[in-house]
Amino acid sequence: MTHVLDDLELYAVGALPADRSDAVAAHLRGCASCRAAAGEIAEVVAALADTVPLREPPADLKDRILAAAAEDVRRQRRAVRLPRIPLDPRMLAMAAAIVLLLGFDANQTLRLQAVQAERDEYERGLANVALGGRTWYMAGVDQWKGSGGNLMQPASGKPAFVVFHDLRPLDQGQLYALWLIAPDGKWVRGASFRPDAERIQMVEIGQELAGFERCAVTVETSSTGKREGPVVMQSRIAPPSQ
């Protein structure tokens, strides 16, 4: 085994090229001595943050973080309360989509089916994406309080998608439109869809996230054209992937 001690400082400050950084991370997972050395360097590097004059974050930032975490807990509890149901074709299709998106291996797929707990697996799949990629939570407003969706950008460069929960049913002729909003205020439709009556619904985005700073969901009467309906959920998204 070739140790990575020579690279640990550059790794700790994030200055290695991505492929080398990945190789170092992989080595650290299996090498206790390099891991110990990396831990000591990481503590010195973290101390660099102390060289900057302290700034006060906005007063509501903590509340926003705790609210998003609490929503995580609520969703997890709701998932746990769901009855164990036989696999139905729609859920299998959704699980398969997640398998494709996340690159689960065949054994994981088999386990997914074997435990007959597709929704729990699904939650774990989302957690995997959250660790490797980026997620932004859109909370419903007004009558849509209690609805929400996680916009997911997988780390692998696979297409972005949104996992909605508790979407309200719509009247005949209405549909949801998912929008990406550019810094200049331009709204670009990423998807149009009808709620499918499942508690969890995945919607792929036919649009790159690059160049957008917010996302929103509106209720529309047409699957094309400009935004006209009310915003029912939205989130700011950090500068997107290239």
């Binding site: 650290l28 891991r35 990396a38 930032l61 998003a68 995580d72 959250a130």
Partner: peptide, 23 residues
């Protein structure tokens, strides 16, 4: 703000990955 929110939620969701020997 976005980065801090993102980071604390990542810590929340990935707390099980924290290993003392890595710092």
């Amino acid at each position: 703000e976005d980065v801090v929110q993102d980071a604390f939620l990542a810590a929340w969701r990935g707390a099980g990955t924290f290993r003392r020997e890595r710092g």
